[in-house]
Design a protein around this nucleic acid. Structure first.
Length: 568
RNA sequence: GGCACCGUAGCUCAGCGGUAGAGCAGGGGAAUCAUAAUCCCUUGGUCGGCGGUUCAAAUCCGUCCGGUGCUACCA
């Protein structure tokens, strides 16, 4: 069996992420990882905080902390939050780790040795007020085209024209508003990406059938427009230092660009995982000469170029057999009520406040069932509440409730053993076989909206069966027949819990524990990958069951109104 | 400006060359075990506009309109 390596795009260190960030990388990666483990595959799910770059330095400044302390604190916050959402990382690392420093420097040395790097002098904006270089975006001024007064040095938000900081009228620092800025020459390392165009194109074409159109079109667009060499160093203090043995120390005091070291952190975090768990060199077997590994990357569409072009060039240029991505799953944006989620604008719902409203599983279900796979999707409170009330409360929750309550009322709260499965049951079993196979196939392809549609259809199948079996009617005249319906209902709950587990791990456990203890209190609820005739006849007669508390309480109209008012 | 993606029932979306589909919402009925939850039936669309290719187009091509994103120093 092939091993499965899964990485989620790294959340930036700068504050709590919003639900759009969650649904675009971390959540789908987690669901895929859980599915993979449920199928019994050896799985490694890696994520980390992306900690370098100007925004981190400025956020630390604003918080009155040194950047290392700031990042350490924010990392812990994001880690704890992720765990509350059930994100089952094997390791949640930090791009500022010593492991990433070493491996990033290793890649840079390889690229230098192989002649893929060169030193070029560039003109950079320097702010005397802050005594630091400023990225183009952090220089603001009046747009020469449209007169907008807060145009950024890379692009004018008002007229969308691409700019250079030197184009701006009355340029000033976006950080301090100081106009005391100047242009200085600065030497930087450039990665000669242009040398890799053909190699990249061949590689991308080889994944023509596997990658979604979104990823292919973005990747090819970069190649078609002519791949430019890319500066991979910055005039910052917080980052992976450029080693002195590259370019005779010309880059002394500079650090690698955050987008150079961030994807390498996927590898480095694997080493962090091994180091933390006494696994020695095992980390390397996942990345180096790892021909038995299928590697999946999950990311938002803004990240696609870095994963289809930038990082692959780093790996190809190293001349070493590091693992390239096999399957890319890219997501569009989830919008909030017709506009963007915005971290800086504090618009939308954030991971921490969302949990004040509803449990993680409810968010996991809604978000992934409405993931922006083929196009941007839109979060509205009415849609959110409508989907959860119908799917989780009415279809699934009520199913669990009606079956367990009836069993307790009429069969002493024990799995009834009387009677044998007949035509109704065989019809159900056949449909379950078909639907579970379909659900599995969608999960294999990481087609989450379709998978969740099928999961929901599976729950509906259960309700249809109960209507046909009608044990509440048969109990009056034929106790054995009623027993068959209840026994099948309880078996369905058991199977549902296993099928739900990748998506809603906590709710799945509640469902399972109502029907049957979990053997050895295992973390993973494995996939029922054998015929439903067996899976739906597993519970032992006499096994005591309980009716769980309401799985998901319906959201009242007044509650929706309150949330709308609170979040705008 | 360039490029990409999207525009299908009131809403959220699937279908992507062969007689228009799902879920929700709306209408009617059944059932009464259950969180008044379920189940069955059903009303909704000249598939953004125009033109073309084809025996056949929601599906391919062109063009226009509308929306979104990217455009390499935010990450």
């Amino acid at each position: 069996m092939n091993r499965v390596l899964i990485t989620s795009a790294l959340p930036y260190i700068n504050g709590v992420k919003h639900l759009g960030n969650l649904v675009g990388s971390m959540l789908p990666a987690d669901i895929f990882a859980r599915y993979s483990r449920a199928r019994g595959r050896e799985t490694l799910f890696i994520c980390a905080t992306d900690e370098h770059g100007t925004p981190a330095e400025l956020a630390a400044l604003e918080a009155g902390q040194d950047v290392a302390t700031y990042c350490a604190e924010q990392h812990e916050i994001q880690k704890a939050l992720g765990e509350r959402y059930g994100l089952s990382w094997d390791y949640f690392g930090r791009s500022s780790s010593i492991q990433n420093r070493e491996i990033t420097q290793h890649f840079a040395r390889q690229l230098w040795k192989n002649g893929h790097l060169e030193v070029r002098t560039t003109r950079q904006v320097y702010s005397n007020a802050e005594k630091r270089f400023l990225p183009d975006r952090y220089v603001i001024g009046t747009c020469p085209h449209c007169g907008y007064e807060r145009a950024r040095g890379d692009q004018c938000e008002n007229c969308t024209r691409v700019l250079d900081p030197t184009d701006l009228i009355n340029p000033r620092s976006a950080v301090s508003n100081s106009p005391d800025i100047e242009i200085r020459d600065s030497a930087h390392l450039f990665l000669k990406q242009s040398l890799f165009v053909e190699q990249l194109r061949t590689w991308i074409d080889s994944h023509d059938k596997e990658w979604p159109a979104l990823a292919l079109s973005i990747a090819r667009k970069w190649l078609d427009e002519g791949l430019k060499d890319r500066g991979i160093t910055r005039d910052l203090e917080w980052g992976v230092p450029v080693p002195d043995d590259i370019a005779d120390g010309q880059l002394k005091g500079k650090v690698f660009y955050v987008w150079f070291d961030a994807p390498i952190e996927y590898i480095a975090a694997t080493k962090e995982w091994a180091d933390a768990n006494g696994k020695g060199n095992i980390w390397k077997s996942w990345w180096h000469d790892a021909n038995d590994v299928t590697y999946w990357e999950f990311m938002g569409k803004d990240n696609v170029p870095f994963h289809t072009v930038g990082f692959p060039v780093t790996i190809m240029g190293s001349g070493e057999p590091w693992k390239l991505v096999d399957r890319i799953k890219g997501f569009n944006w989830m919008n909030y009520d017709g506009g963007k989620f915005s971290t800086s604008g504090k618009r939308g719902v954030f991971m921490d406040t969302a949990l004040e409203l509803l449990p993680a599983d409810a968010w996991r279900y809604y978000l992934i069932a409405n993931a922006p796979e083929s196009a941007d999707s839109n979060f509205t409170w009415d849609h959110f509440a409508g989907v959860l009330n119908k799917d989780l409360a009415d279809v699934l929750g009520n199913f669990v409730n009606r079956v367990t309550k009836f069993c307790i009322a009429r069969f002493d709260g024990k799995v009834p053993g009387e009677g044998v499965y007949g035509e109704d049951e065989n019809t159900l079993i056949a449909e379950m076989d078909r639907r579970v196979a379909q659900y599995a196939e969608f999960m294999e392809q990481a087609e989450f909206r379709k998978a969740l549609g099928e999961l929901r259809a599976i729950w509906v199948t259960g309700n249809e069966y109960m209507t046909r079996a009608a044990p509440w009617t048969h109990i009056k005249t034929d106790r054995d027949k009623a027993a068959v319906g209840v026994r099948m209902g309880l078996n369905l709950i058991h199977v549902f819990s296993h099928l739900c587990w990748p998506v809603m791990p906590s709710m799945a456990r509640v469902m399972h524990l109502a029907i049957q203890p979990i053997a050895d209190n295992a973390e993973v609820l494995p996939w029922p990958d054998y015929p439903m005739a067996k899976a739906l006849d597993e519970l032992e007669a006499g096994q005591p069951i309980t009716a769980p508390d309401v799985l998901f309480a319906k959201i009242a109209d007044e509650q929706i109104a309150e949330w709308k008012a609170r979040f705008g």
